[in-house]
């Protein structure tokens, strides 16, 4: 079998290409997101982390997608005492630049716009976050529980999910 060459994929990046891509990405983010970009930093595993307010989530995701960051890594949520953090990570096949987007969602109001139209894989990941944390994704085509049975009560990965000590049995027991 022979490979059909795909432009930009499969060639080793030149030394420093990732650095360049990072600079270009950050400059574009400042430019495009403006005041919606609260801050950014390099995490200790080498990803560029953008931080935006919850209202800028959709715009920031669209911006990341428009930069050719085509490979979806994960979407997840962390339950901090005061708020939820929704984290989205994706990287680029071409430049190998890893980007992470974090937003803070207050505990009492958690509806975030969906990004299923940007990345195909976000569909199931959003359903998983909904199942385990109870975050609502406005505009998701089919938002229902994915891992737990649909009759399950509560959102298990929240820190205040106390049921795990004494599990309430479903009806069939």
């Amino acid at each position: 079998m022979s490979a059909v060459p795909v432009p930009g994929i499969g060639s080793k990046p030149a030394v420093g290409a990732r650095e360049e891509a990072r600079h270009a990405f950050v400059a574009a983010a400042r430019d495009r997101l403006g005041a919606a970009l609260v801050g950014y930093h390099d995490s200790r595993d080498g990803a560029v982390c953008l931080i935006t307010p919850a209202s800028g989530y959709r715009a920031a995701a669209e911006f990341i997608r428009s930069q050719g960051i085509d490979r979806f890594d994960f979407l997840t949520c962390v339950d901090w005492p005061a708020h939820f953090t929704l984290t989205l990570q994706a990287y680029s096949f071409e430049t190998k630049l890893v980007t992470r987007l974090s937003i803070r969602i207050p505990r009492d109001d958690f509806a975030v716009p969906t990004i299923t139209d940007l990345w195909f894989l976000a569909d199931w990941e959003e359903r998983e976050v909904f199942d385990l944390f109870g975050l609502n994704f406005a505009g998701h085509p089919d938002l229902k529980r994915i891992l737990n049975p649909e009759t399950w009560v509560g959102h298990p990965l929240r820190k205040d999910y106390a049921d795990h000590v004494d599990i309430k049995r479903p009806e069939y027991f």
């Binding site: 891992l147 737990n148 298990p156 999910y161 049921d163 795990h164 599990i167 027991f173």
Partner: peptide, 13 residues
């Protein structure tokens, strides 16, 4: 412990 979704032994079923 902590496995909220796991039946504690199939002999319950």
């Amino acid at each position: 412990h902590d496995g909220y979704s796991v039946v504690k032994g199939v002999d319950q079923v």
